[in-house]
Simulated assay, not measured.
Amino acid sequence: MTDLQMSLIGGAVVFVGAVFVYNKWQEHKARKSVERAFSSEHDDVLMRAGEAPAPVPATARQEPSFELGSGGRGGDSGDAEQRYEPVVSDTVIGADDVVAPATEQATSLVDPLIDCLIPLALENAVRGDKILPVLHTLRHVGNKPIHYIGLAVSGEWEPIAHGGVYTKLQAGVQLASRTTALNELEYSELVTRLRTVADEIGAEAEIPDMIDVMAEAKTLHRFVAGHDAQLGVNLMSNGAPWAMSTLIGALEKQGFDVRPDGRFAMPDGDGGVLFTLSTNVTLGADTTSHLTLLLDVPVVAPARDGFGSMVACARSMVARLDATIVDDSNQPLMDEALGEINGQVLEFYQEMEAADIPAGSIRALRLFS
């Protein structure tokens, strides 16, 4: 037998083997698809839930652009609203539309302005209680939270919940935090782990381009860094230092809540914090002669007048504690200077509103947490 004949026979054997393996792979793939489609869990749920609605057309991913100029000012608010209205069904929800509570929760969890949105296309409708344990395995990359929402059979996006049935899913990873922007390593980890999650729940992740995501993350972080403002008002004793045992009682009467770290928090009346106070000494200290009231500006809504409330509190404590309101250099802060600062706070609020991230909003609380 010649070498040519041997080569032809060998090639034929390899070809037949390849065809056999390919057919087995196709058979396995088809069997898994059938098992998923006709498993008892899917069948029972869909029979109870009724027919799922037609799929919602995919929408183009929105890319944030804050148009930062000198001083960190936001871009045109009208343009921002036009680009970043969240898609929650077949239509875009506008400011005058009535949005269901579940949809509001969904758009606050996976927000196209501050999150990288990653659609997860499902082969079949899935139950929330079946996929939640898998989704819970991927909740953070670095210090960036990951949230998930689903398109329910009712036709509305909502947070994934037990008892829900979903025809589409979306994951969202926050693009920036107070400290850092989403980086390449975090995004690579997200993509790798999210593909594993998608395989386990029978979905396919539509991964956005890393270059675009990194550009958005850096832009958003520049905005956050430029608006990470905290304002302090100090009280200095006019005489002897205050005894801590007496001071704590006076602060509690003023309305402050004591924190485990030794700070005091002024409640806003709705479970949040309006501003805080530090005694500027360690927990074991017996006295202090210097108090600092601190307002975290971007996390307090303008309607609460956080700066005005903080100044009013300081003025009330001046008489109670025999103190003087001073700046960080211990120079007295006159009413004129406090008025100028208040004007700057109002401008700050306008900048955040123009960027569609109002101070005290869910977006601001997520970014400045």
Rank of each mutant, 00 (worst) to 15 (best):
A181V: 05
H136F: 09
F368S: 00
M1A: 15
E158M: 14
T137P: 04
F256V: 00
R315F: 08
G94W: 05
Q230D: 08
T288S: 12
D356N: 10
V299P: 04
V19T: 13
S7N: 14
L346E: 14
F38S: 02
V299C: 09
L182G: 05
I131L: 04
L247F: 05
L138P: 03
F66R: 00
T167V: 13
A215L: 08
T276A: 09
L293F: 11
E200I: 07
T279A: 13
T282D: 09
E104S: 12
I131Q: 01
N330K: 14
V98W: 05
T292V: 11
V165W: 01
E81M: 15
D327A: 02
D90Q: 13
A52Q: 07
E353T: 09
E204L: 08
P64Q: 12
L120Q: 01
L169D: 05
F66Y: 12
A355C: 12
I146V: 13
Y187G: 05
M317L: 15
G339E: 02
D261C: 13
Q82S: 11
S245W: 07
H28F: 01
L135R: 00
D209Y: 10
V165K: 03
L367G: 05
G269C: 06
I201G: 01
E63V: 15
A217E: 02
A106D: 02
L135N: 06
Q230F: 09
A161R: 09
Y349S: 04
